[in-house]
Design a protein around this nucleic acid. Structure first.
Lengths: 245, 245
DNA sequence: TTAAAATTGTGTCAAAATAACACGTTTCGA
DNA sequence: TCGAAACGTGTTATTTTGACACAATTTTAA
């Protein structure tokens, strides 16, 4: 039966649970960004021990008097300078030897941000860089595993929920959105079917403006219907009609 | 910048991370079972402090030298007597005041088991009982929230992946499977469309036997094609064609 | 012995969604 | 001004879905 339910029998408020180990609780973040062409990761070139000089994810420790949710937001703010970042919990990583210095359980989450909106200075202060997924370096500890799983989860979630919008600027074109989906799934999509699929969700509002940065026909700039986005979030559609099925 | 990345600069193996809090790490399990008619929860009538006498989920603490995965299996074994139980991680719960005695982070998971296969004696030894979801009592701490989320996740997952089979005996009929899905989604389904949908997945193998317990026409007993189940697990189908969309 | 009731297996058909593909328009610059 | 590149919209055959009907099996009661 080992240590299951090993509470000690006491009503005194300041007695503690017996026999069980206290350990460090880390929060590690996989931050995805999109620059219009490629999917990128915000990674840290470590200038501190352990594994100084190597690449890793951004992380931090949970404080004694800090809610988990709050700590996650704090870490994302420290890294990107952004508040109200979209993130989801990924998984807890807890192998005994995953951190060489001390037993540490990591609760891992992934975040999606608009790469242009985020504070580049803050990232530089953290020695962080945007790295294309395809040039992904080897990471310390079990961080490679974390990124693999985050990418898998991103694909899973983006196929069913409109989270891809979190990676785009406020106003965007349908071809830009398509490029994002092609980057996420690393596969080409049919332009016409994609457009029909996206428009059928009625999540996009035509701003009346056009993308002036184009060298050819200027595409319509849309924005997200925030109300519908919130309310339809869990009513899953297939956003991936062509591939990944 | 608070405590983000507050590693101390040292190469000595036995130095520890500075300044950060160590805390208890609990593992709480939501165990779903199916008796042929209703979806049930395996709950504990607490005969220990804190909150003695009240209902709660089964849980335990992570040990110093124990992998997270291993601890989860240990706790499920202690509760059900089963090994190789199907489970998924749900979410980490970490509000500062969620446990009155001491700061405890709970990593929560939900498990699916065949209610008849599990060891009733072991459950009794833990003071655990199968409670119909509809008669769910109030639970201690944040356990209500955990169950709510687990049910939501179960519905989400079962709509896309064939995890429902984990709740059934090895041999089962299509009407039994339909009752399970109706219990999970709390909604009636069309018998004919359901059958067509399930058979189209080619996941079922006709055993040649029939359900002898029936008072009317005996339904065909199927078993799961384990090979296909494993390989197709992540190639999501809609298992819920009628409702929940 | 037979008819009724309950349950199971299979089939039909119209509507909707999907996948593959075609055509015309806008924009810039050669 | 003409061609190339990118954008917006349309067509059509096929597949999938949702709403049904009907026949077969088994037990029970008339």
């Amino acid at each position: 039966m080992s240590q299951t339910q090993n509470y000690i029998d006491t009503t005194a408020m300041f007695r503690k649970y017996a026999h069980s180990a206290r350990m460090l609780l880390a929060l590690d973040s996989i931050v995805f960004g999109f620059d219009g062409e490629e999917l990128k990761l915000l990674l840290i070139k470590r200038n501190f021990e352990p594994e100084k000089g190597k690449w890793s994810l951004m992380g931090g420790f949970l404080e004694e008097n800090e809610d988990l949710e709050l700590a996650t937001n704090r870490i994302l703010y420290d890294l990107t300078g952004l508040k109200d970042v979209y993130f989801e919990e990924l998984k807890a990583f807890g192998k005994v030897d995953r951190d060489p210095l001390e037993r540490t359980i990591s609760i891992c989450f992934f975040a999606l941000i608009n790469i242009h909106a985020h504070d580049q200075d803050l990232a530089k202060a953290q020695n962080a860089f945007w790295i294309s997924l395809k040039d992904r370096p080897n990471l310390v500890f079990d961080h490679n595993e974390m990124v693999d799983l985050a990418l898998e989860r991103l694909r899973y979630r983006a196929a069913l929920h409109p989270i891809g919008f979190e990676l785009l600027p406020e106003k965007f074109t349908i071809p830009q959105l398509q490029k994002l989906y092609e980057a996420i799934y690393d596969t080409p999509l049919d332009r016409r079917n994609f457009s029909r699929k996206i428009l059928s969700t009625k999540l996009l509002i035509d701003t009346g403006e056009k993308n002036e940065n184009s060298a050819t026909k200027k595409a319509i700039l849309y924005k997200l219907d925030q109300t519908k986005y919130q309310s339809q979030f869990n009513a899953f559609h297939y956003f991936m009609s062509d591939a990944s099925r």
